[in-house]
Simulated assay, not measured.
Amino acid sequence: MTIDEAATELARMYHQGIPNREQALSVHLCGITFATQLDGMPLKELATRAGIPVNYATEIRKGMNLARYVETKKAEA
């Protein structure tokens, strides 16, 4: 995954969280889902390219760290 592909996915997930005010949750989930692909990427630059505040780089890292301990599941409708 390139940084531009990651930025596109991060932006999509961030904006998906806006209606329920779950942007941080969505950024954590992005970090969990793509932890291995994001490893080694400059996270501040990733946030900038995604068009979200640069301080979300910390939230991406939190998700990446959580990836070792959690599994994602489908949201119930």
Rank of each mutant, 00 (worst) to 15 (best):
E5H: 11
T48H: 08
E5K: 15
D4L: 05
Q23F: 06
I18K: 15
I52D: 04
A24C: 08
L66P: 15
H28E: 04
G63H: 07
L29F: 05
Q16H: 14
T8D: 03
E45T: 12
A47K: 06
E9G: 04
L10W: 06
V54F: 07
L66R: 14
G63S: 12
N20L: 03
Q23P: 12
E9C: 07
K44L: 10
I60D: 01
L43M: 10
T58V: 10
P53D: 00
M64Q: 09
L38I: 01
T48W: 03
C30M: 07
Q37V: 04
Q23Y: 05
Q16E: 02
E9T: 03
L10T: 12
M13R: 14
N55Y: 10
D39Y: 08
E59L: 12
N20D: 00
A11N: 15
G31I: 02
H28F: 09
P19E: 00
R49N: 03
H15C: 00
Q16G: 09
R49A: 06
Q16N: 05
L43F: 13
Y14L: 10
E9K: 12
T58M: 15
K62H: 13
A11Q: 15
E45C: 06
R61M: 10
C30Y: 11
G17T: 00
L66Y: 05
L66D: 01
A50R: 04
R61Q: 09
G40M: 11
A47V: 03
I18A: 05
E5A: 12
V27S: 04
R49T: 04
E9L: 11
C30H: 15
Y56Q: 01
Q37M: 08
Y56F: 11
V54C: 06
A6L: 06
N65I: 01
